[in-house]
Design a protein around this nucleic acid. Sequence first.
DNA 1: ATAAAGTACCTTGCATAACAAAGTACCTTA
DNA 2: TAAGGTACTTTGTTATGCAAGGTACTTTAT
Lengths: 142, 142
Amino acid sequence: MNIENAQVQMRKGILEFCILHIISRGEVYASDMLDELTSARIMVVEGTLYPLLTRLKNAGLLDYKWVESTSGPPRKYYILTALGRTSLNALDETWKELAESVNLIVSKTDQHRAAVNGKHETLDMNRPGSHRDESGLSPTEQ
Amino acid sequence: MNIENAQVQMRKGILEFCILHIISRGEVYASDMLDELTSARIMVVEGTLYPLLTRLKNAGLLDYKWVESTSGPPRKYYILTALGRTSLNALDETWKELAESVNLIVSKTDQHRAAVNGKHETLDMNRPGSHRDESGLSPTEQ
DNA sequence: ATAAAGTACCTTGCATAACAAAGTACCTTA
DNA sequence: TAAGGTACTTTGTTATGCAAGGTACTTTAT
């Protein structure tokens, strides 16, 4: 597991949420979505997007209609179903909570760093040279 | 695919980031991490955490030492390696960018909703598919 | 006509990972 | 020595991102 892998992982699960958002703004087809995601610097490829759309369709969150194109084959234009809109609202909430949770954890680290840098205390940060709980304090809390 | 599934998905990939953060603040063992994650309302179970720790260890981001406990079997106390600290910094950046990207997409939807509710006009969307909407109404709102 | 190039959607196969559930091992207490 | 608690591990299932290759329709060039 390298860093790139972790970065890829971090983006997973967000895609579905972003797709629903984009579709919620009006009828779009796959290339529209790819453009929008790319401009938000969320990289997705066809092999990811098409199966995702199919899953969402089968789950009843999306519907689509075929539309003729003036410059190529017909396109599938997607829209949200009523269930899709409900789901999107729920995911909005989930995203907020998740971002809050992560920021809570990050800010705790920031606090910890500030505390460690502020004192000349370097007990816990670096080395396992320290010992066991005779100190009485868990390394995690306080 | 139901909503719960989507919520689970959304949390994926964030775990590794949160774990690294928690360990960065000092030596901890698995139960400490579970407590911290639970208090941040990020639910994780052993079957997820232990393999994750093993992966991070094998990737060279973590190290651990066995420590006797006064109330049970010995514990594995984890710390970040130098590589782990570097990686955490990179993931901090990744998280910031990801949150920014998602919030950009969400805010675009908000703008769209405001525009639709404010006017009775729904044709001005930037999408290239607009040539087809004789219907004139976005399927999302109203 | 036919070939080539562009656009759009679909499928297959692989690797990874979250999770449930069951298992192993150690320690304390009754 | 039995029971219960704590901690770490493993196995099997399922889901999913993605690369790569495929089908099909359309326009443009030869």
